[in-house]
Structures are given as structure tokens and as C-alpha cells.
């Protein structure tokens, strides 16, 4: 029954993946013929390209800031949107809205929010007595600013949690309530373990997706200021489609691939300790 997935993997994924691996050992500008250069791309990357280290650092920094922020806030919001309140359908829809507003509209809006002179964020900061920030226009604050913006787009993570919360049997809550457990205790000892399989999913997908962050750099910062938001995939994209270095781009991609793979394996290996599956055969 997993046949479609296996076939799909062989048909649409394996071939392009292998192709990109082969390309990573060549010099290729997409229009010319590829020329085999051995490990030259990789040795250049590790020995002669300081930008790759910079991009690796900012990508990791962004990932470790954004992923926990998004997961925690999405989980809290999902919990709220699972309470028995009036107008729930409307609240749920509104909280999901930021994730479906076209990316272009979102980007223009955020450029204004972050604007150091007229932006709403600085207006709020000065009103409550803080100093203005340069947000995405300062090397030091650009990554935290983009991480803040990523929380805005947590809608998809949130509705996965919301779906997960439906799988928690009400009887467990009722039993706990009779035993005198308060809301926090019920949340900690029932909700959390029961949705741990969904937290696990969001963590793994968050890592995989966020390591490949691209559009924020492309639309809002162009990798700046001073390469402080030069994410790996954005740097890769520049190499592939602006500098005509497809071979080098593929080498970067496979390096990133290995990094993401290592982190994913670590999360998978730790999962038996903290993920609970009701349907596990015991």
C-alpha cells in the first residue's frame, strides 16, 4: 500500500536528486555543457569561501530562534482556539489569515512595520519608552526581526496542532478534573503527551523547512545588511541563477542536505524518550 509513495520517490525524486549530486562535481552554467571538476566545488567551499560560513551561521541562528518560537506560539494559540468560546469559527479563521494573505502583500506590509522612521514597531517602542530599533536594517537585529516575522506565519503549524488536539479523548480531561487537576496540570500531563507526536512532526518539518529559508531574504533584505541575512538557500540561489554557477550551487545544496539530515536524525533518535504514540504495539 506504500507503493504509490515508493514509485513517486523513484519517479520524481530520485532522478533529480542524483542529477543534482552529479552536477555538484561539475562546473556548469546551465546554458553551457557541464565540465567535470571532481571535488573542486567542495574544496573551494570549505577553504576559499568565507561567505559560506557566514551563511551557515545566519541560517542556523535563524532556525534555532524561529523554530521554537513558532512551535510554542502555535501550540498556545491552538490551545486557545480549542476552548469552548463564542465565535470560535471566526477566531480560528482570523488567526489563520496571515498565512493565506499573498506573500507580496505581507512583504510590503512588513517593510512598513520595520521601517525605522515611520514603522509601527518603532512607534510602539518609543511610546512605551524604549529606543528605536533599525530592525532588518541592522546587522545585529535583522535575524531576530525575521524570526519575529516568522511567528506571524505560524498558521499552518497552528492548524496542525488544532487537528492534533482533537485526538485527545475528552474522558481523560474529565477524569483528571474529577481528580482535582487544574487547567495547567491537565495541559501538562494530558494535552502535552497526547499531542507529542504532532509536536514531533512540527519540530522535524520546522527544522527541514527553516534551514531552507529563502523568500524573506529574497523579498525583504536581499541578504543584507552586510550579508547578515545571507541564508544558505539564498546564497545558493544567487550562485545558480545570478552567477551561473550551478555546480557550486549543487555543492552548497548537498552540504545543507547533510546538515539537515544530521539534525533530523538527532531528533528522530531522541523521539522515543519524549514522543508518545497511543497506537504503538506493546
Amino acid at each position: 500500500m506504500a507503493l504509490p509513495a515508493i514509485l513517486g520517490f523513484l519517479l520524481w525524486n530520485l532522478l533529480p536528486m542524483l542529477a543534482s549530486l552529479v552536477i555538484s562535481f561539475t562546473e556548469w552554467s546551465v546554458v553551457s555543457r557541464p565540465k567535470f571538476v571532481g571535488i573542486a566545488n567542495f574544496s573551494r567551499m570549505f577553504n576559499h569561501d568565507p561567505l559560506i560560513w557566514k551563511s551557515l551561521y545566519v541560517t542556523a541562528y535563524y532556525t534555532f530562534l524561529s523554530v521554537p518560537l513558532v512551535i510554542i506560539s502555535a501550540f498556545l494559540v491552538a490551545t486557545l482556539l480549542n476552548q469552548n468560546v463564542r465565535g470560535l469559527p471566526v477566531f480560528r479563521t482570523i488567526f489563520y489569515l496571515p498565512s493565506v494573505v499573498p506573500a507580496v502583500a505581507n512583504a510590503v506590509l512588513w517593510l512598513w512595520l520595520f521601517n525605522p522612521d515611520f514603522g509601527l514597531l518603532n512607534t510602539i517602542l518609543t511610546n512605551i519608552g524604549f529606543q528605536k530599533s533599525l530592525w532588518i536594517y541592522d546587522e545585529k537585529t535583522v535575524i531576530p526581526s525575521l524570526a519575529l516575522m516568522s511567528v506571524w506565519g505560524m498558521g499552518n503549524t497552528m492548524i496542525i496542532f488544532l487537528a492534533g488536539l482533537q485526538g485527545v479523548p475528552r474522558q481523560l480531561y474529565e477524569a483528571a478534573e474529577i481528580d482535582g487537576a487544574n487547567f495547567i496540570q491537565r495541559w501538562l500531563y494530558i494535552t502535552l503527551p497526547m499531542v507529542s507526536s504532532v509536536i514531533f512532526f512540527n519540530l522535524v518539518m520546522g527544522l527541514i523547512g527553516t534551514f531552507q529559508v529563502f523568500s524573506q531574504a529574497y523579498v525583504m533584505t536581499e541578504g543584507g545588511p552586510n550579508n547578515a541575512s545571507l541564508f544558505m538557500v539564498y546564497y545558493l540561489f544567487r550562485n545558480a541563477f545570478q552567477y551561473g554557477r550551478m555546480g557550486y550551487a549543487c555543492a552548497i545544496a548537498w552540504t545543507l542536505f547533510v546538515i539537515v539530515l544530521v539534525f533530523t536524525i538527532i531528533v528522530f533518535k531522541t523521539s522515543p524518550a519524549w514522543v508518545y504514540y497511543e497506537g504503538e504495539r506493546r
Partner: peptide, 27 residues
Amino acid sequence: GRDMIFGMLLTTMMLPYAVTLVPTFIL
């Protein structure tokens, strides 16, 4: 081989779209 194949499926999401784009298009 169930879990191994499942792992392989997951790896397909770890390679940036930008580099499989051209080979996929050629396909």
C-alpha cells in the same frame, strides 16, 4: 525495510528545490 524507506522519503524534502528544479524540468 518500512522505516528505512520512510526515512528515504523524508530526505527528499531536505534538498533545496532550487537544485532539483532544472533536472526535474528536463525530465
